[in-house]
Simulated assay, not measured.
Amino acid sequence: MTPLTVLVVDDQEMVREALRAVVGRREDLRTIGTAGDGEQAVELAFALRPDVVLMDVRMPGTTGVEATRRILTHWPHPDHPAPRVLVLTTFDHDEYVHAALRAGATGFLLKNSHPDELARAIRAVAGGEPALAPSVTRRLIGTVTALPAALLTGAPRIRDARERALEALTERELEVLLLVARGRSNAQIADDLALTEGTVKSRVNRILTRLGLDNRVQAAILAHEAGLLGLRSDRVGPDAERHGQ
């Protein structure tokens, strides 16, 4: 297996070396460069063409948000896909989350996350799967669900179609949707439900398709609106498999 290549960006050398060490301990990951500011991050991303950029948000000069926007907007290699950007920060303030996602970041993780969680997030974003810290997911849900219902759910016809689609989901698919709404990654959902990660990924994609949604955050918001977060946690686990596939 060819390792996923990672560019580490942070203005503190100690943090860069710590992140390099975390990446280097995984056989399927490899650091191909480090950058100490946003300008260097853009230059190295263009030159090295990594699979994933671990991007700090708060840096002097060009911020991580601006660097992310420039990398993804001005990617100069039409024959090579642009890297996925996983934003790392000490802060989970809404302004950073929203700005990073608007700039095109695929994931947002706090720097105090466990090394295994960071490694899983790198793999997830490399595969195009959004990776959001649970606290970030909760904040996004809270922010969006505070909007007027008309802005949240769209036209009545779309809303009705999604309600019918929710009713058509199997028990197992509802359990997967519930765990997505709680900010669980595919790997964590697989552990919770005694499934393979590939099976979970397939079911998440099927759920998004059935509900006419683009991503996991939209799915989490819909689950919140539908009251699924009120389901008892003891309905989520290996024994629940008998209720639906």
Rank of each mutant, 00 (worst) to 15 (best):
A165M: 13
A150L: 09
R138N: 10
P148W: 11
I158S: 11
S113Q: 09
L152T: 06
D160Y: 04
T153K: 11
R172D: 12
E129V: 07
L118F: 01
G154W: 08
R123G: 03
R172S: 11
A121H: 03
A165T: 13
A168N: 05
L118K: 00
A119L: 04
E163Y: 12
L166F: 11
I122W: 03
P148M: 10
E129K: 02
A165K: 08
L118Y: 00
A149T: 12
G128Q: 12
E163M: 13
L174H: 10
R159K: 12
P134M: 02
G142V: 13
P156Q: 03
I141N: 02
A146D: 10
A131Q: 05
E175N: 12
P115K: 06
S113D: 08
T153Y: 11
L166C: 05
R123W: 02
D116L: 12
L132Q: 11
R162P: 09
V176N: 04
A168P: 01
R159D: 15
E163N: 13
T170M: 07
R157W: 09
R157H: 09
R157T: 14
L174R: 13
A124R: 07
R138S: 15
E129I: 06
T145E: 14
V136F: 10
A126C: 04
T153A: 14
R162D: 13
T170K: 06
T143M: 14
I158C: 05
A121S: 15
I122K: 02
E167L: 14
L166E: 05
L132V: 03
A131G: 07
L140W: 03
I122R: 03
S113P: 02
A150M: 05
P130N: 06
R139G: 02
E173Y: 05
L132T: 04
I158P: 00
T153F: 14
H114P: 00
V144T: 15
A168C: 03
T137Q: 14
A121R: 03
T137A: 08
P148A: 09
L151S: 09
T170D: 11
T153Q: 13
A149Y: 04
G142P: 09
P134E: 12
P134Q: 05
E167W: 04
T137P: 00
S135W: 00
A149D: 13
I158K: 11
G142A: 15
V144F: 15
L166I: 04
